[in-house]
């Protein structure tokens, strides 16, 4: 294992595991408790439009996906707050239109898109240094926002109407929360890919919420769990020579199943 660490790609993989787990533990806690899973799916898939636009314009696709996914997050949020379109309809539209735009943009791009597959399904072993830096930056934004606004986010997630009555600027914070989801999607794209993002946002939190009744503890536990299981999945994919993103997700799914079964048998035989 020690000699493995000398390889840049392994080192980058380990660092991105930690960075991804931080984003997922924090944002995922709100995604799960405020039930934003579907909306997050919409935001992550819409981000594919940004990837395609990056190819077309010759800009780093992950960089291009940042403004793009933030705009689609705001689009979904505003559409469901201000218009008569119901939220899940708004999500469905942006989800598919984003994907379709991405494909068209790539069609229009000169040449072909060699690592397109890795944006869809991720490849933790090919995270470039620049993207790593970007991930650090986005993690800082996410941690900073939640450090400053965790009281408001907690109130918003628990009881939106009461939060509003207490003077919490709920509309603004809801949109901000969706933007944080968008940023965490960007952090994850390289590692698990757009299609598998939701698993990393939800499964660590779903596992950990069976063990704690406090929001902050849930975040920290989820980060730790994310790191451990992602590393395990990474190792497994290395040993079995399988796709890393998918193996990580399967490891997460298996862990969730095991923990839930364990919890149930413990409950039924006190």
């Amino acid at each position: 294992m020690m000699e493995l660490l000398q390889y840049d790609f392994i080192r980058n993989a380990l660092i991105s595991t930690v960075l991804v787990s931080i984003a997922c533990g924090i944002v995922g806690t709100y995604v799960v408790t405020k039930r934003l899973v579907f909306i997050s799916g919409g935001i992550s898939h819409a981000a594919f439009g940004g990837i395609g636009l990056g190819y077309l314009l010759g800009i780093n696709p992950v960089l291009m996906a940042i403004p793009y996914s933030i705009l689609s997050a705001l689009g979904i949020g505003v559409m469901s707050q201000r218009t008569n379109v119901s939220e899940d309809t708004a999500i469905g539209i942006l989800w598919t239109v984003g994907m379709a735009l991405g494909i068209i943009f790539i069609n229009l791009s000169p040449g072909y898109a060699p690592d397109l597959f890795s944006y869809l399904f991720g490849n933790i072993l090919t995270v470039p240094n620049f993207d790593l830096l970007l991930m650090v930056l986005l993690d800082c934004v996410i941690v900073g926002a939640v450090a400053l606004l965790h009281r408001e986010f907690a109130a918003l997630s628990f009881d939106e109407e009461f939060a509003q009555v207490s003077g919490v600027p709920t509309r603004f914070l809801y949109l901000l929360l969706l933007c944080l989801v968008a940023l965490s999607v960007i952090v994850m794209i390289r590692v698990v890919g757009i299609i598998l993002v939701i698993a990393l946002l939800t499964i660590p939190v779903a596992i950990c919420r069976q063990f704690t009744e406090r929001l902050m503890t849930l975040m920290l536990l989820s980060i730790l769990t994310g790191i451990i299981i992602t590393l395990f999945g990474l190792w497994l994919s290395y040993v079995l020579d399988l796709s890393s993103g998918a193996t990580i997700i399967l490891a997460l799914g298996a862990a969730f199943l095991l923990v839930s079964l364990f919890k149930r048998t413990k409950k039924s035989s006190p």
Partner: peptide
């Protein structure tokens, strides 16, 4: 209509009633 499995205890629910503005700590 709140999520009954929401990870929060009684004390923190009531503390939320003391909310007094952005960035104000309890």
């Amino acid at each position: 209509d709140f999520d009954h499995s929401f990870p929060i205890n009684v004390f923190d629910v009531v503390l939320m009633g003391r909310y007094s503005g952005l960035f104000h700590r309890y």
